[in-house]
Write a protein that binds this DNA or RNA. Structure first.
Lengths: 155, 155
DNA sequence: ACAGAATCCGGCTTACAGACCAACTCATTT
DNA sequence: AAATGAGTTGGTCTGTAAGCCGGATTCTGT
């Protein structure tokens, strides 16, 4: 569940989870996977079903009157796309248009699928390179003043 | 797990773990090894699987909206390359292009593989010499303001 | 309600990266 | 100088990714 992979989306907006990660899904009997928006950067996050359960339930329980909390809930919960994995065959994931646009993924282009341990991130290659070399992306969210309840969370 | 070795990478981008360290892997029943970027200098770090588990799980649990934390997670977790060791044969490790570029390793050149006790470092020879004599590398990262949670960690 | 169109999904095929295995060279030791 | 062990190289073969294609399902407009 670590590391750097370049993969591509086909004309039907599908991509496959790299084979080296499949064992990790199978051995914990994970049958589903959730893709959603990253609240700070133009990228997507991919969680295993069990991880998603933790994160989403924590996020739901945060106090709902704080505007920042509500923004996070909208972004993360409201855009979640649940996919069932086919454990025997290739693990194909269909990306909804809203998410493709958000992460600026053009069809038939290469993009990055990056393993971060308990989750994956999906990035447009140019955005990733820019961000890694210290650049600032037009769409990123800076200096968010976070309520204490969120500061204790790891997404 | 200490000391200074010259190694080389072949045209298939492989290098072999110096024989004197192999016993250390075998006797603790380590079956895997992880190579990743050093967040400060243009060099690579090599961890035994058990060491990597500690470091990566600590890093994952840090607060996920802090931009500095995310930078570290991207660099260290996102570029990790996990290799399964074949205990019977020679221990060959494949270095992905991203990591070779980062540490400025050209094919068919000699590099340094330096044992630091619980980890190894891989350096381009010129960069290492420059750094050891007090020089500053173009790509190194200075004066990063780190959140307290990170200051307590050792990578 | 129906026909045509667009979208979705699985199977099949091919090219290629990476794993595996084996051999060769060089250095060191006896 | 022979033998052993280490590092390095090379060939082969398997498994994976990704393109292609056809069938199924859903959507749309009439």
């Amino acid at each position: 569940m670590f590391g750097y992979n370049t993969i591509s989306i086909d004309q039907k907006h599908r991509f496959s989870i790299p084979a080296k990660y499949r064992a990790d899904f199978l051995k914990t009997n994970e049958t589903e996977l959730v893709v959603t928006k990253d609240p700070q950067y133009p990228s997507l996050k991919v969680y295993k079903g069990s991880e998603w359960k933790n994160i989403s339930s924590k996020l739901q329980s945060l106090q709902g009157l704080d505007p920042i909390v509500r923004n996070l809930q909208w972004t993360i919960l409201g855009n979640a796309s649940v996919t069932d994995l086919d454990p025997s065959g290739r693990m194909l994931v269909l990306l909804p248009e809203e998410l493709r646009n958000y992460a600026e993924l053009d069809n038939d282009n290469k993009f990055l699928f990056i393993g971060m341990g308990n989750k994956f991130e999906i990035w447009n290659t140019d955005n990733w390179n820019l961000r890694q070399t210290g650049g600032t992306l037009a769409t990123e969210i800076l200096d968010v003043v976070l309520p204490i309840s969120i500061k204790e969370m790891s997404f």
